[in-house]
Structures are given as C-alpha cells and as structure tokens.
Simulated scan of single mutants.
Amino acid sequence: MDHAAVLALFDRETREGARPEGPGTRVERGARVVRRIGAAHGWNGIVWSDLDESTADEAIAEQIRCFTGLGREFEWKLYGHDLPADLGERLRAAGFAPEPEETVMVAEIAGLALDVEPPEGIRLVPVTDATGVDLVADVHTKAFGTDSTWLRHQLQAQLIDDPDHVVVVVALAGDEPVSSARLELVPGTGFAGLWGGGTVPHWRGRGIYRALVAHRARIAASRGYRHLQVDATDRSRPILARLGFEALTTTTPYLFL
C-alpha cells in the first residue's frame, strides 16, 4: 500500500469531503474546518481541519461557540498528522478531554482473506428492525460498558431513513446476542467504514469479530468499494493486522461536554 497516497485520499474523500451521516444531520464547511451537526443524541463534531499556529485557537473557540449555541456536546476528531503539532494541547487548554487514542487501519478489500466463517454455533443475522436494534444495543452495553441509548436512536433512524448506506449485523449463539457490528457505506467515495464491532466478554477470543469483519468486507466489495477503514483499539488491531489491514495514522477523540 502507498500509505501517503491512501492517507491523502482518505483525508480528501472521508474528512474534507465528509457527507451527512444519516437522517437529520448536516455538514458545514468553513475555510479551515468541516463539522458534522446531528441530533442531540447523535454524533456531533469536527471531522477535518486545516490549521496552523496562527489560526488554531480562534478556530477552536469558534467551534465551541457553534456547538454550545446549539446545545450540543461534541467531539473534535483529531488525527495524528493534523496540524499544528500541538493541536491536542490547545484543545485541552480550551476545555476538551481526550479519550484513548485509536489506530486508523485501512485495507484494500481485494487483498483481504475473506473466507472466514463464524465459529460453530454462531450465526450472523442482519438487523432490519427495532427488535434487532435492541439486540445490538444490548451487546454494545455489555461489550463496552457504556450507555447505548444514542446508538439505539441512531440505528433506528438510519435503518428507516437511510437503509442503503448502513449494514448492521448481530451474532447470535442460539437466541443470545453475543457480538454485533455495522458497516457504513459512504456514497461517492471508495471507503467503507467498519464500526461498532464488539463482543461480550465471555465470548471473546473465539473468532467472532474476525468473522464479522470478513462478512462486512464481502458486502462492501459487492457494492463496489475499494477500501475498508477501521478506528481500531489495542484489542482489535492485532486481529485486523492478521487479516491484512495496515496502520495509516492515529485518531483521538477530544470531547467537549
């Protein structure tokens, strides 16, 4: 992989060229910042910036005014190659709190090994209605230990209003939901995003996550996408590397609550 070329393409198509993510969202483009504004329970934040030492502080202050004026909590999605080099320090000084750093991993779908099947006793079921969304939310709560209300609202809205651009899958052991994940298909780009992959603790280490990656990759390939992108935790990064993903950059969510 030509990392520099893929990184430039990733920035141009998915960040600077960001599109609304589901119903009720909009993208606003300024000269130096691109922000996505959604519902109060959805994702709100900064997806791209082109700043330097002379413009960063005012741009940060402007985004705080914008989102607080809307009554929104929001995130500045900072990437490892974003400038200025001290942008993270400037965000902390302005009141943002960093979450754990993740690794942006990318793969060309054509180069992936996709003949991965779920372990015995596990079936992958597409999520198409509120009952399925409840199963996904249950997995999310158990896998990540966080409230899943926002996810339930987001998935229900996407499946109703934008079903062509999101694929949601739940892994069942009998009738028990043990893992789930979604695939977000970004129209007009060559990138499809793998999001939300999580497995409940007592089912980890059995190959379910790997099977969900391969399942979603096959779907993305069938719809003409060239690349897959994942914001990988330390837990998922080794699995993705074994499947053929490569580290492109890092990303750190900076939250303003």
Rank of each mutant, 00 (worst) to 15 (best):
D2I: 07
A5E: 15
A5I: 10
F10Q: 14
R12D: 13
A18S: 14
R19M: 11
P20G: 13
P23G: 12
R26K: 13
R26P: 12
E28F: 02
A39W: 11
H41N: 06
N44I: 05
I46F: 02
W48L: 05
W48I: 07
D50Y: 00
D50F: 00
L51Y: 04
S54P: 00
E58G: 03
Q63C: 06
I64D: 07
R65I: 03
T68A: 12
F74K: 06
E75L: 10
K77S: 12
L78I: 07
G80Q: 09
P84T: 10
G88F: 08
G88P: 08
A93V: 03
A94Y: 02
A97D: 13
E99D: 15
V106F: 12
I109G: 11
A110F: 06
A110H: 05
G111K: 05
L112D: 09
D115Y: 06
V116N: 06
E117A: 06
E117W: 01
P118K: 00
E120N: 09
V127N: 09
V127E: 11
D129H: 05
D129I: 03
T131S: 04
G132N: 03
V139S: 00
T141W: 00
S148L: 12
W150M: 08
L151Q: 05
R152F: 08
R152D: 05
L155E: 09
Q156R: 15
Q158V: 02
I160W: 04
D161K: 15
D161W: 12
D161C: 14
D162F: 13
P163V: 06
D164A: 15
V167G: 04
V168T: 03
V169C: 01
A171Q: 02
A173R: 01
E176A: 06
R182L: 09
E184Y: 11
T189P: 00
T189H: 00
G193W: 09
W195L: 14
W195G: 07
W195M: 13
G196L: 10
G197H: 03
G197P: 08
V200M: 01
V200R: 01
P201R: 02
W203V: 04
G205N: 00
G205F: 03
R206K: 00
G207Q: 04
R216F: 05
A217P: 14
I219M: 13
A220Q: 07
A220H: 07
H227K: 03
H227N: 10
L228G: 09
D231C: 09
S236I: 15
R237T: 15
L240C: 14
L240H: 11
A241D: 11
F245R: 09
L248G: 12
T250M: 08
T252N: 09
P253V: 08
Y254T: 01
L255V: 15
L257V: 10
